[in-house]
């Protein structure tokens, strides 16, 4: 807690200063509300506008969690399969990398055509953006297994299964978690974008409605909600990481 205060006061100060400058600039320059609302207005809306946005919050949270969970599973399974079947890795790894040049958003209309406006195409978008960082980081983690331990195990007669579960899998866990953390923030983005394409409820919908009615303060509220949601998901994953990785991962490649 002490370190949080020690490390946190500088960025907090910068943010507070920024808000103060923003607030006064809006007041002094008499900027129109629909163009740029003052921070005080945004926070006011955040506190008093709950009955407007609260119903939009839950569908997005649901979408994120389901999408991320399936995305993780797909990512991990893909990573393991590509790792243990070298032929598949050689065949699919380059395709995977290249496929990341396709912005997922451009695929979304297609998914809507195929799967309609329900949950399914939205979850699909999230899975698509989530699984890639997970698969890549997992494969990276597998590859970075210590050569000496590997040799020790091989000479001691370890089977491929033993090498996988006793060495490669635990070795890849820290790397896997960095992948999941990236995916968690992607999942919120994926959820909001997919809601833009067609939904009845959700933060994305709330954002669009606010925009078309020139309630710029609400657009900012939506942004704040998205940030909070991302941070909460990230915190949840870091908690899980702390529970699962009690040892300190070695830094760099050195042995000492």
């Amino acid at each position: 807690m002490k370190t949080l205060v020690e490390k946190g006061w500088r960025p907090t100060l910068v943010l507070v200063l920024l808000f103060i400058i923003w607030e006064f600039s809006v007041k002094i320059l008499e900027i129109e509300q629909w163009l740029l609302p003052a921070p005080s207005q945004i926070f006011n809306e955040l506190i008093h506008g709950t009955d407007v946005y609260l119903e939009h919050l839950w569908p997005t949270i649901q979408l994120c969690i389901i999408g991320l969970a399936i995305g993780c599973t797909v990512g991990i399974v893909t990573g393991i399969i590509l790792h243990i079947v070298p032929f598949l890795r050689q065949a699919f790894y380059p395709i995977l990398i290249i496929s990341q040049n396709i912005p997922t958003i451009v695929l979304a209309p297609l998914l809507v055509i195929w799967f309609g406006f329900g949950m399914l195409p939205k979850i699909f978008v999230i899975i698509l953006v989530c699984f890639f960082p997970i698969t890549i980081s997992l494969l990276d983690g597998f590859r970075q297994s210590d050569r000496d331990v590997m040799n020790y195990m091989k000479m001691a007669g370890a089977t491929k299964q033993q090498i996988f579960w006793k060495l490669e899998w635990p070795n890849a866990l820290p790397s896997l978690f960095s992948g999941i953390k990236i995916s968690a923030t992607y999942s919120v983005m994926g959820a909001v974008i997919s809601e833009w394409l067609g939904a009845s409820k959700g933060i994305g919908v709330y954002m669009q409605l606010s925009q078309s009615s020139f309630r710029t303060d609400r657009v900012f509220v939506a942004i704040i909600l998205i940030v909070i949601l991302s941070l909460l998901l990230l915190g949840l994953i870091m908690l899980l990481e702390k529970k699962m990785i009690r040892w300190r991962p070695k830094e760099g490649k050195s042995h000492e």
């Binding site: 000496d148 040799n151 033993q162 006793k166």
Partner: peptide, 30 residues
């Protein structure tokens, strides 16, 4: 494989295993 016990220049211990679990690795494999 499985006929010798090898100790490399680096200690080659698993950072996620306790000392006790580390020394038991060879037996676990067997």
């Amino acid at each position: 494989r499985g006929s010798i016990s090898y100790m490399p220049q680096s200690h080659a211990l698993m950072p996620w295993r306790t000392i006790l679990d580390n020394v038991l690795l060879g037996q676990e494999i067997a």
